[in-house]
């Protein structure tokens, strides 16, 4: 491999969301509910009164509302990194449903990681430190 080809291989463009443009990681939210059962009654109210406003405020998210009879309601969000996240909302009031909608909308889609080390560093280890370097 020539040195120019090696240099070409070394160069990469790293995407940092938020520099230049911010892209909402959530791209689809699906609400499953039942038209008749009691556990979906607040979700039905939320869909009737607030879902259009939510969709208007978030144009980059596809909203899908599905009637699933005889089942408890839940919200499922899909993210650009391929993951998805679901939250059950049976018997929950409208404020709580809205809270979960906002949570799923704002979520990154990456799995929750417990931070074990109190200090994180991106630089090299200090063991081979040389004062001149």
């Amino acid at each position: 491999m020539s040195s120019i080809a090696a240099a070409k291989k070394a160069a990469t463009a790293v995407i940092k969301n938020g520099t230049g443009a911010f892209v909402q990681p959530c791209h689809k939210i699906m609400i499953n509910f039942c038209k008749h059962s009691g556990s979906s009654r607040f979700v039905r109210n939320y869909i009737n009164e607030h879902i259009v406003e939510f969709a208007r405020q978030n144009p980059s998210i596809v909203i899908a509302v599905n009637h699933r009879p005889c089942a408890h309601p839940f919200i499922r969000a899909e993210y650009l990194n391929g993951s998805q996240k679901s939250i059950g909302v049976k018997n929950l009031p409208e404020e709580k449903v809205h809270e979960f909608m906002m949570f799923l909308r704002s979520h990154n889609g990456s799995p929750m990681v417990k931070i074990q080390q109190p200090i994180m560093s991106t630089s090299h280890n200090r063991r081979h430190f040389n004062a001149l370097l």
Binding site: S3, A6, A10, A11, T12, A13, V14, T19, G20, A21
Partner: peptide, 19 residues
């Protein structure tokens, strides 16, 4: 292009080859 392509972080020096 400014928004999505040129805003990415690139190591410009990595593309230089000096013999």
């Amino acid at each position: 292009a400014n928004k999505f392509i040129l805003s990415r972080v690139t190591d410009i020096g990595a593309g230089i080859s000096i013999r």
